[in-house]
Amino acid sequence: MSRILEVENLRVDIPLESGTLHAVRDISFHVDKGETLCIVGESGCGKSLTSLALMGLLPTKAIRTANRLTLGGRDLGTLNETQMADIRGSRMAMIFQEPMTSLNPAYTIGNQLAEAMLRHRKVNPNEARERAIYLLEKVGITAAASRLGQYPHQLSGGLRQRVMIAMALMCGPDLILADEPTTALDVTIQAQILHLLANLQKEFEMGLVLITHDLGIVARVAHRVAVMYAGQIVEEGTVEDIFRRPMHPYTQGLLRCIPIPGKTARGAHLGSIPGMVPSLIGDLKGCAFANRCPHAFSDCNTTDVALREASGGQRYRCLLSQEAAEQNAREAATA
């Protein structure tokens, strides 16, 4: 399998008056061709900033650093803004959380669809139009040709998100980043859109990074899962491992209500875990989850916790041994 995205020690720091906010703290992951990586975690844990950092679309004051950041083997870390723009929308595309406001109200759907292709590929407007119609049909929009002349305000939220998906596919990218693409939509439409995305990902053999709250969908579409907490990846592994044998107490908390893939209710949300997320400003001492962890012991507050690898390749950021963690997982599953 060829590796599309490789991220090593990605950091995003935002200097604020009260100190530096370390929004993303040394996270590492990778995505292979035809693979879906789901990133889950409570809101504010750095999921959006992670995706924006990959796209080079961070807020101007945010600082990105990484030991390694490659797309299809090409180092993104050294690219300037112009070179990055050549890649955005072409090799890598993004779908945002807010379909209602992500399209420009002043231009037709057709214009906004064609634009990315006209920018990156040597095509004439007619060819771009053909491709737009083809993709609108692909994303399940009827009467595609007549939609091209419509304006965003004439479409519902669900349709707009389908348009956004078609737009991301215009140049046939290797990687799609979808940041909670259905959170703003009606519950009945959410699953449709996510399945659509998963199917297109399969059909076009793209890499997909799907950020979502919907663990039911994660169970269905993910190949691998990364769980984020307070700017760190606290657990990462195949979807089977994560759901059958969550090693990290936080993941166990998230999955408490839905432990088995395939039997999860549609639209199920993250279980709520009592307690507060620590401040992301300044350095953390010990385990970030210590103040909420049911298994915390004295070392957790003082020892910095590294990711450790369990047998089978699953990684988790906890001081507990594999045996102790597995024991907790079994107890959590039966609780």
């Binding site: 890649i87 929308g89 945002f96 399209l103």
Partner: peptide, 9 residues
């Protein structure tokens, strides 16, 4: 942001 995500000039 969408326009920039498309890599437009």
């Amino acid at each position: 942001r969408t326009a920039r995500a498309k890599g437009l000039f």
